[in-house]
Simulated assay, not measured.
Amino acid sequence: MTIIAAFPHGKRDRSALHLSAFIARSYDEDLRIVSVVPEAGRGSIPSGSDLQFAAWAKKRSRQAVCEAEAAAAQICPDLTTVAVAVENRSRAKGLLAEAAAHRATMIVLGSGTEGTRGRIRVSATSDRLLHSSPVPVALAPKGFVAPERLTRVTCSFRPDLEARAVLAATAEFAHATCGRLRIATFGVSGRTVPPESVEEESARRSLVAELRTAQVEAIDSLDGAEHGEAAAGEPIAEAVGIGKDWKAALAAIEWESGELLVVGSSSEGRRSRVFLGTNAAKIIRHAPVPVVVMPWLK
């Protein structure tokens, strides 16, 4: 099986390659580095004919492949990689076509050079994939440079039946990569309340207790030791992050440098496709670690 890494040729962003190598190394999978270039005969430049444009596109493809190969030699020389350039009018469609042709297990994208360092920026391409991809989509924060291997996988959990399938898929992913799994629920408490308010603190404790109970029930629903425990028999960890906004909620729990956050799709989208809900989009924007978005499977 193959992991697709989107490579933005001609730009300095290498976060997608770092993240895809990070996951491929832990998953023991091959890495296909894909640059999408303008489709010959369909683009337009002010003073060029179709033949000139085709020659320019081929030259750009060769440059993109050379650039990707050089980056791979520097970032992940230990992995089996193939660098290719594909022609398509749409970067998202080109990546989806490559994923389908090579039975990819995941598509990995970076956050570009704009935005806040250490946070994920959703581009037009990643937004399209986050609403249509049939395989998981991984997003790297700006400037992401991965440690050698995955240390833990955290599942963003909602206390409803739809989330059980996401937890099961995350458990399988953790079992195949690093063996350590954590289940975390995030919530926003609303307007800021003074710390001396006993009622607010009591309500918060009650909410956290309810969420932890739901987490325990979800963990108990996982079948067998393969899902219920990590490698070496380590039990599944639990966490609840509550804050005045989503940024504070994500910051309320601790994170490891070699961690991934897994978020599930909304059931409002098509079955077996990624479709990002409003809360999931906010979690992604404030996540301090790379995020993997799983397709919705009923």
Rank of each mutant, 00 (worst) to 15 (best):
I3S: 11
A5N: 05
F7L: 03
F7P: 02
H9N: 13
G10M: 02
K11V: 04
A16G: 09
L17M: 01
L19Y: 11
A21E: 01
R25I: 13
R25C: 08
Y27H: 10
E29H: 14
V37W: 02
A40R: 10
R42T: 04
G43F: 10
S44Q: 10
I45D: 13
G48F: 10
L51R: 02
Q52A: 06
A54F: 04
A55W: 13
A55N: 12
A55H: 12
W56L: 01
K58H: 05
R60G: 05
S61R: 03
Q63C: 04
A64E: 10
V65Q: 04
A68R: 12
A68Q: 05
E69M: 09
P77K: 11
T81E: 08
V84W: 04
E87T: 09
K93G: 09
K93Y: 04
K93A: 09
K93T: 07
L96E: 11
E98C: 07
A100W: 05
A100D: 11
A101N: 12
A101M: 07
A104M: 09
I107T: 01
E114I: 13
G118Y: 05
R119G: 01
R119Y: 10
S126Y: 06
S126Q: 04
D127L: 01
S133G: 08
P134E: 03
V135D: 09
V137G: 13
L139M: 13
A140R: 13
P141G: 04
P141C: 10
V153H: 11
T154S: 08
C155T: 05
R158L: 14
D160T: 14
L161V: 15
A163T: 06
L167S: 06
E172R: 04
F173P: 02
A176P: 08
T177C: 10
F186P: 02
G187P: 13
G190K: 00
P195M: 12
E196S: 15
S197E: 02
S197Y: 04
S202R: 09
L207Y: 02
A209F: 10
A209E: 10
E210A: 05
T213V: 13
A214V: 08
Q215D: 12
D220G: 00
E226M: 06
G228Q: 11
G228M: 11
E229W: 02
A232L: 06
P235E: 00
I236S: 07
I236T: 15
E238Y: 12
A239G: 12
A239C: 10
V240D: 15
G241Y: 11
I242F: 15
K244S: 13
K247T: 04
A249W: 06
E259V: 13
E259G: 15
L261K: 15
S266G: 14
G269R: 00
G277Q: 07
G277R: 02
T278G: 14
N279T: 03
N279L: 02
I283P: 03
I284A: 03
I284H: 04
A287Q: 07
P288H: 13
P288M: 11
V289F: 15
V289M: 15
V291F: 11
V291I: 09
W296M: 09
L297Y: 01
K298F: 07
